[in-house]
């Protein structure tokens, strides 16, 4: 437990230093954060414009799609804020800065994630929060305690699923050198895929993001429950509450992959 507490303290210290450094240039920080709001918001504006000429997409209305969009955007936003810096791993291996982290008494993953912590990434979080808030006002959800809890755990699980993808991508870079693009394909690609109702995709895609890389648990299954919709795959009802399980499973896989990556690095020297 003390190791966890220490890691957390180190994470806070390192990220805090980067926040202070960024705040020295407040105007530039505000501009960058706003820029993130705009770039991540552009695809939602595209969806809104699309709904000027259609009423439903894949059987879902604008409010419902906004719910899907908000949930997945928030999940990615949190993960990106916490661990977006892991993209840099390939460079760290190449320039040797990973070595300086490996001789410090804090897990290298914590240092890689905290280093160059960019608070401007709250841009995406705030944009997704606004869309999610708007969605909750415009969809018809029969609220009770279970559904409220489901909403909260979904956001947490979504963040953990995207976090795990960041870590998996970083672990992959131990093998493939600079594969930040591959990592992006799954993080940004995943968010683009899941911001639409999965009914618009072939069933193979839905199966893949259910059983292979559990992106559908970021928003799709819990949203089906919240909206009282039928599951097109016809999976049992508990699946719609299984996001935390999917998140934990993927996190475990990511943890093993990261350890494997570090072990490989330490035994091959590259």
């Amino acid at each position: 437990m003390t190791a966890l507490v220490r890691s957390w303290q180190a994470y806070r210290a390192i990220s805090g230093a980067w926040v202070r450094a960024a705040m020295a240039y407040r105007a530039s920080f505000v501009a960058l954060a706003l820029g993130q709001v705009l770039t991540s918001g552009a695809d939602f504006i595209a969806i809104v414009l699309m709904f000027a000429s259609i009423d439903t997409l894949g059987g879902f209305g604008l409010g419902e799609i906004a719910l899907l969009y908000g949930l997945t955007g928030l999940g990615l936003g949190i993960a990106d804020l916490v661990a977006g810096s892991t993209e840099q791993l390939g460079r760290r291996v190449r320039d040797g800065s990973l070595d300086t982290m490996l001789v410090r008494p804090v897990p290298a993953l914590v240092q890689v994630a905290a280093d160059q912590f960019a608070l401007r990434r709250i841009g995406r979080i705030s944009q997704a929060t606004v869309v999610l808030g708007w969605a909750l006002l415009h969809v018809d959800i029969d609220w009770n305690l279970t559904r409220a809890a489901l909403l909260v755990t979904t956001i947490g699980s979504g963040a953990v699923i995207y976090l795990s993808i960041y870590v998996l991508g970083a672990a992959f870079q131990f093998v493939a050198g600079d594969a930040a693009e591959v990592q992006n394909a799954f993080t940004y690609g995943g968010v683009t895929l899941t911001q639409y109702p999965l009914t618009i995709y072939p069933v193979e895609v839905v199966r893949a993001v259910t059983f292979l890389l559990p992106l559908a648990f970021v928003n799709w299954y819990p949203a089906l429950h919240l909206l009282g919709r039928d599951d097109p795959l016809g999976l049992p009802g508990w699946v719609q509450a299984a996001s935390p399980l999917a998140a934990l499973a993927l996190a475990a896989v990511a943890g093993v992959a990261w350890r494997g990556g570090v072990r490989r690095y330490r035994s091959t020297g590259s």
Binding site: R6, Q9, A10, A13, I14, A17, P105
Partner: peptide, 9 residues
């Protein structure tokens, strides 16, 4: 230096 103090506790 302040960061290293926290990292090395």
């Amino acid at each position: 230096f302040a960061l290293l103090r926290r990292i090395y506790d």
